[in-house]
Write a protein that binds this DNA or RNA. Structure first.
Length: 466
RNA sequence: GGCGAGUUCGUCUAUCGGUUAGGACGGUGCGUUCUCAACGCUCAGAGAAGGGUUCGACUCCCUUACUCGCUGCCA
């Protein structure tokens, strides 16, 4: 087969944050390039010079890398179609503007350079929505011939442009539609994979391709990600909308990426949790959905939990330790042995690395919190302080906290006081950890050790008397 | 208002004219267990509405409704 190789691109503008929708767009471009053995290009749309680029650019690079997406051409990667920042491509834009000017497809108005559509013109009054308000204004409408958009996801879409648009703004900066098309042409982009919000812009772009005498690339307009609740698409203020949030909450990037794959695409083999290599192998643009998908925070968490639990224990330990360090719970002085035992206990209990501190904190510090809700429910059915007090002498009598000895001590105490052993487990757990759940109680005792257990139990009894 | 796209359980989805409309998340109940989580099983839960086409429609066509997007010298 002598088909030219696939070239896709992701073209974010440095805004200081990385939206989940952008991440998904980048991902689909990346997946398609990897699936076809093509080239994935990163292009920076930084025409807005006001922004503090370096810092904002880093957000883009870091987010892409975090999600495991590498680019073959672009900043830091080189490539033959550079430069890859729009702010450095003025010469190219000037050259392409000349082409349009030479064929009479441009004109100036109010200091800006406009693209002239071909067709009959007439002035009409039209209504349009500005936020909630309906405004009436007069515009020049052009009866341009409809253009046909071939879209691998949506099929053929016909749409007619009906007004000229700006190529270069009055301040001299080229506008989005113009640079987008010029860049895609000069970078040899074969597949434009982008959000459905651009479908309506595509007729403008095709007009430009025609004006340049260039065959348009293949388009693939992917569905949008809608708010988890409420109306409209995800906006940066919505919970879960920014990649940064997942980073600070210690989500596993593989999990986030897996979740993103599932928003708008389903693997042919029906699996939901699958390694990225398998996604790459199966990914097809034609299989991308048409309908917008609502963001589901709980499914995201579920996937994250699955990934965390599936982590090799030593990897989990490494990551969990980093989280605990960041939370100030452990440091260089913390015993390695203690860390290891705690991590092997909590890996199967965590819903995500972000709750490792809550789950493991009491192993490392004496001033752990007592959950008031758990206390309340304990007090409701029994007197926890008294139970621990009853148990304490027998525990003190034990030389070591082997499971069998501890269990025997509890059974004996229970028999003595005429209750079931169960009555002692919850109060003791609460005294030692301040929680109502967690690892097996025997394991907690073993890891905590005799001294700490007795100390915490005594303190609990004391405090209960107050 | 105009133009474009979309519409299967609460959510993400499977179904490529013939299925008891399947799965996952979430929810329910049960089991396991000293607890929580996990896990296993259970139950509830869907073709927007109305017309066609067809022996037969979730699947094809039309209309309506609703949703989303575009309608900027933002990208």
């Amino acid at each position: 087969m002598s088909t030219t190789s696939v070239r896709t691109r992701f073209a974010p503008s440095p805004t200081g944050f990385f939206h989940i929708g952008s991440a998904r767009t980048a991902l689909f471009n990346w997946l398609y390039a990897r699936h076809t053995g093509g080239t994935f290009i990163l292009r920076i749309e930084d025409t807005d010079k006001e922004r503090n680029s370096e810092e904002y650019l880093r957000v883009i690079y870091d987010s892409l890398k975090w999600l495991g997406m590498d680019w073959d051409e672009g900043p830091g990667a080189g490539g033959a179609s550079g430069p890859y920042k729009q702010s450095e491509r003025s010469d190219i834009y000037r050259e392409y503007l000349k082409k349009l000017q030479s064929t009479g497809r441009t004109y100036e108005k109010e200091g800006a350079i406009w693209f002239r559509l071909e067709g009959e013109r007439q002035n009409i009054r039209e209504k349009y929505k500005d936020g909630d308000r309906l405004i009436e204004r007069e515009i020049e409408r052009v009866k341009a011939a409809p253009v046909l958009i071939h879209d691998v996801i949506r099929g053929d879409v016909t749409r007619a442009e009906d007004r000229d648009f700006v190529l270069v703004r009055a301040n001299g900066e080229p506008g989005f539609h113009f640079v987008n098309v010029v860049d895609d042409i000069t970078m040899g982009i074969t597949h434009v994979i982008r959000g459905e919000d651009h479908l309506s812009n595509t007729s403008k772009h095709i007009e430009l391709y025609k004006a340049f005498g260039v065959t348009p690339p293949i388009f693939a307009h992917i569905p949008l990600i809608l708010k988890g609740d409420g109306k409209g698409k995800m906006s940066k203020r919505d919970r879960g909308a920014l990649i940064e949030e997942y980073q600070t909450r210690h989500f596993l990037p593989e999990a986030v990426r897996n979740f993103l794959c599932l928003l708008g695409w389903t693997p042919a083999d029906g699996r939901e949790i699958l390694p990225i290599a398998d996604v790459i192998a199966q990914f097809e643009l034609t299989a991308v959905h048409q309908a917008n998908a609502r963001f589901d925070e709980r499914k995201m968490s579920f996937l994250n939990q699955q990934y965390v639990r599936a982590l090799p224990p030593e990897v989990f330990a490494l990551k969990a330790e980093a989280v605990l360090r960041a939370a100030g719970i452990v440091d260089d002085k913390t015993s390695r042995a203690l860390l290891q035992s705690v991590f092997s206990l909590i890996q199967e209990k965590v819903s995500g690395l972000e709750n490792a501190p809550a789950l493991a904190g009491y192993f490392f510090k004496e001033d752990f919190d007592f959950d008031p809700k758990v206390h309340e429910s304990l007090v409701k059915k029994d007197i926890p302080g008294q139970r621990v007090a009853e148990l304490l002498p027998r525990l003190e009598g034990l030389e070591s906290f082997e499971d069998a000895l501890v269990d025997a001590a509890i059974v004996e105490t229970a028999t003595e006081h005429g209750v079931k052993p169960v009555a002692y487990y919850a109060p003791l757990r609460f005294a030692l950890s301040g929680t109502g759940g967690g690892p097996h109680l025997n394991a907690i005792l073993r890891v905590l050790g005799r001294e700490k257990v007795l100390e915490r139990a005594r303190r609990f009894v004391e405090n209960s008397k107050k």
